[in-house]
């Protein structure tokens, strides 16, 4: 069974003297009935799809609405020209988050992680490390188990759907999962993973879901960037020994409470927030007109 709390997940590591990814893997085998080999093969398949999505990104691809595509290529070009502020890793995280999220908008194959809208966050933080040889595929897959285990706790205590909990439940959750994965890859303890997870989720608490014209494009694609960047900063803080003071489970519960208090207009209805701005509404008009012509 998936763990109902981060506290119990960490306690199981202690009690069974097992590393965190192993505890999560075993709990899923008990629930899903998969064999260990099937589960590992499936995780490697998830990673191979993440790699392929990024590799098959094309600068010229555009979404059906015409509003998504081409941004990752701009970032990569600017990085090559030395125009950006971040270092090599951050520049790649930025470009990769856009790449996968743009691929999703352009109807390419992605891994929902945890959702399609937030699919760019995990690959964004992991791909650059893997490409640089700082993490091999086995280590990446172990980190993905850790990410998934934390995601399962969010699903158990709160929600992973923007329609229920706002974007904090999609990009916020993806970011927190990615933060835990990064700490694990860097050799951090299970407790440090939980700290990174809690801080990442805390920092995106309250994020609403307000997709313009109801499409997974504006603001979703760029939200994947903040999800990834936030994961890196939370992971770095945890690796440095910084703590967030509110335990992970309580942060998840707060997120659930905040999501429930959000107006329906801010939960994937495409009504409030950015979707309701004059420009957001004008874009909806354009997209709807194009739909009627077709």
């Amino acid at each position: 069974m998936a763990y109902p709390s981060v506290r119990e997940m960490l306690a199981a590591c202690q009690a069974e003297h097992l590393p965190l990814h192993e505890v999560i893997l075993r709990s899923d085998l008990a629930e899903s009935g998969l064999t260990r080999e099937d589960s590992l093969a499936e995780m490697h398949r998830m990673w191979s799809v993440m790699c392929r999505t990024s590799a098959e990104y094309r600068e010229e691809d555009r979404s059906n609405s015409g509003f998504a595509g081409g941004d990752a290529a701009k970032v990569e070009a600017a990085a090559r020209a030395g125009l950006l502020l971040g270092g090599d890793y951050l520049n790649q995280v930025l470009a990769e988050a856009l790449k996968t999220a743009e691929c999703n908008a352009c109807m390419k194959r992605i891994v929902a992680a945890p959702t399609a809208g937030s699919c760019g966050v995990l690959p964004a933080v992991l791909l650059p490390l893997w490409r640089a040889g700082l993490a091999d595929e086995e280590a990446v897959c172990r980190a993905l188990y850790v990410a998934a285990g934390f995601g399962q706790v969010i699903a158990a205590r709160a929600t992973l759907a923007g329609a229920e909990g706002g974007c904090q439940a999609e990009v916020g959750a993806a970011s927190a999962m990615a933060a835990a994965a990064l700490v694990y890859l860097k050799g951090g303890t299970a407790e440090a993973c939980a700290e990174a997870f809690a801080m990442a989720l805390t920092n995106l608490e309250g994020l609403v879901c307000d997709p313009v014209a109801g499409l997974v494009e504006i603001p979703c694609i760029k939200r994947n960037v903040i999800g990834a960047m936030n994961a890196v900063s939370a992971a770095d803080m945890a690796l440095a020994g910084v703590v967030g003071h509110i335990p992970a489970d309580e942060v998840i519960d707060a997120m659930a409470e905040v999501g429930a208090a959000m107006s329906r207009d801010l939960r994937e209805t495409g009504i409030g927030g950015l979707a309701g701005t004059p420009t957001g509404q004008a874009i909806r008009e354009i997209v709807t007109m194009a739909q009627e012509e077709a």
Partner: peptide
């Protein structure tokens, strides 16, 4: 929720409800 429902599924974008469903 099962592990590969949280990390997965593999799907063609952009939306689990409007495309995959």
């Amino acid at each position: 929720m099962r592990l590969f429902d949280v990390l997965g599924p593999v799907m063609t974008g952009p939306s689990s409800s409007h495309t995959a469903g």
